[in-house]
Computed example of a mutant assay.
Amino acid sequence: MVNAFFGHLGEVVCMSGRNMTAADVRDADALIIRSVTKVNSALLAGSKVKFVGTCTIGVDHLDQTFLDANKIEWSSAPGCNANSVVEFVYAALCHLDINWLPLKFGIIGCGNVGGLLYKRLKAQGVDVRCYDPNLTPARNPDLTSLAEVLACDVISMHTPLVTTGAHPSFHLLGRDELQQLKNGTVLINCGRGPVINNQALLDVLSERKDLRVVLDVWEPEPDISLELLDKVLLGSPHIAGYSYDGKLNGTEMIYRSLCRYLDKKPQSSLEQLVPPLANNQLRIDGIEQPTTIFNIAKNLIKQIYDIAADDLRLRTLAAQALAGEVVFGEGFDGLRKHYPVRREFHNYQVHLENISYADKQWLQVLGFNCV
């Protein structure tokens, strides 16, 4: 797909993002990356690169000061995989059999991802509390303190990694904050790993068996704590935003940014390159009793996305690494690079019978096309 988008703009050379060196990019005019590539003076000093595009929403892997000082144009893809991450959160809750509807739901970071999750939860009638010091009540009437969010039943973290300024997010949750969590709290992090002090989390989970933790992001990556992986209920290799649709959205956004930079007219689009999904019809089959809207959602989501398979692949890799069969860090990157195709909910049509209009609307808020 990279060649399909960028091929008409020049020669495309693909290589490992984490192992990229200054010699690899010395003669490149543009650099297209994802979050595993650290872009700084060590990589780009002395190169011909004049454009850097990251097909991700986060930019903490870019040394923006260096890029700006050297007049290197750079672009990111804000919001490209927001829907994918939100669907990951719903899939995790369904897999853990946690009905979020009657619970108090906290969101830390309400930008593109957290903001989308917030809108969907509100549309489903959920009591939501949000912490984001960069927003105002005019933009989000449910803004509150971090302490109040930490008192919620479910907490989902979607903040970028910020290490400077008035509101740094690095180690936002340390031992003191984690100890504040009430009994049975569900804590999900699919933002940036270092926003939670992972050593503190390991220590707290060693003392408290009641907390239910889902981690898609870790500190550090790719050499994560296997002890911590063993203590979380669900672990995955930073793939919450890795739906097929989300990755392609990011690629298209950076492609269009590069075209603008080069003053070239775009010649490719997702509509041209990606045909409609075949075999996209879903029906409710063997639904749990009672037939609640939550049980229907669990049934449908599992048909599309088996999140337990992501967890199993990571734990299998950990077991192989502990046995000395593989290098864990390399395997972690491999799981991301060879991640199976996962399509988002909107690609599917759901055939429903004997369901209320309100329940159908509720499923459409999740993203399904109900017929």
Rank of each mutant, 00 (worst) to 15 (best):
M1K: 00
N3M: 04
G10R: 11
V25A: 05
V25T: 07
D29M: 02
A30W: 06
L31C: 10
I33F: 05
V36P: 01
T37W: 05
S41H: 06
L43Q: 00
L44S: 08
A45V: 06
F51H: 12
V52T: 13
V52F: 03
T54H: 03
T54Y: 04
C55D: 05
C55L: 10
T56P: 00
I57G: 10
G58T: 15
D60H: 04
Q64Y: 02
T65R: 10
F66C: 09
L67W: 08
I72L: 03
I72K: 14
W74R: 12
S75T: 10
N81A: 14
N83C: 09
E87P: 14
E87K: 07
A91D: 03
A91S: 15
A92E: 01
C94Q: 08
H95G: 08
L96E: 13
D97V: 02
D97T: 09
N99P: 09
P102G: 05
L103C: 12
I108Q: 00
G109C: 10
G114F: 06
Y118V: 01
L121F: 10
L121R: 06
K122F: 10
G125W: 09
V128E: 03
C130V: 15
C130K: 02
P137W: 00
P141I: 01
L143Y: 14
L143A: 11
S156P: 04
T163S: 11
G165H: 09
H167M: 02
S169N: 03
L172C: 07
R175T: 05
D176V: 01
D176H: 05
L187Y: 01
G191N: 02
R192N: 03
G193N: 03
P194I: 04
V195Q: 00
Q199E: 09
K209R: 09
D210S: 10
V214P: 05
L215A: 08
D216S: 13
V217Y: 01
V217N: 02
V217G: 06
E219V: 05
P222A: 15
P222Q: 14
D223M: 12
D230M: 06
K231H: 13
L233T: 10
S236G: 08
I239G: 07
A240Y: 03
R256E: 10
R256M: 08
C259A: 11
D263L: 09
D263H: 14
K264D: 08
L273F: 08
N280K: 11
Q281W: 01
G286P: 14
I287F: 02
E288F: 02
P290K: 01
P290Y: 01
T291G: 04
K302V: 09
Q303D: 08
I304C: 12
D310N: 14
L312V: 11
L314W: 08
T316D: 11
L317H: 11
A318L: 03
D333H: 15
L335Y: 13
L335N: 11
L335T: 13
K337I: 08
Y339G: 09
P340E: 00
H346C: 10
N347H: 14
Y348R: 07
Q349W: 03
Q349T: 15
H351Q: 06
C370G: 02
C370Y: 02
